[in-house]
Amino acid sequence: MMEILEYVANGLMLLGGFFAFSGSLGILRMPDFYSRLHPAGTADTLGQLLVFSGLALKIIVISLADEAAIDGLSIGKLIAISLLLFVTTPASTHAISRAAHLRGVEPWTGDPEREGTDE
């Protein structure tokens, strides 16, 4: 039972790391500003959710295996950070995109030659 839970926690963390990495890859590879918002908003949110839940599960599993008291404070802090990022990541994505839209950054429509230029 404990081994299964530990494998689950490891899998969650690795998957979260993979999602966080591919989110950054998407930001690097997408052709224009508005497309880059998509990986920044979603992949990062899932990545942090998976990594933090993996960490919390791991803390629980290890303290159960050692028959020590569960470190509730650390788990509470992990949940607090996760919730905080869950709310602020879409909000800051929206703030950036709105500012860019108001300033008039042009969207990319499929022409590979034209990219947005620096002001």
């Binding site: 999602f19 591919s22 989110g23 890859l25 998407g26 590879r29 997408m30 052709p31 224009d32 508005y34 497309s35 998509h38 990986p39 979603t42 992949a43 949110t45 899932l46 990545g47 969207p107 990319w108 429509t109 499929g110 590979p112």
Partner: peptide, 18 residues
Amino acid sequence: ASLDVTLRSWGTASAIQP
């Protein structure tokens, strides 16, 4: 959404029509 966006970030640029 994350699965979707991950597939598109590893794929080619023609995978999106913004």
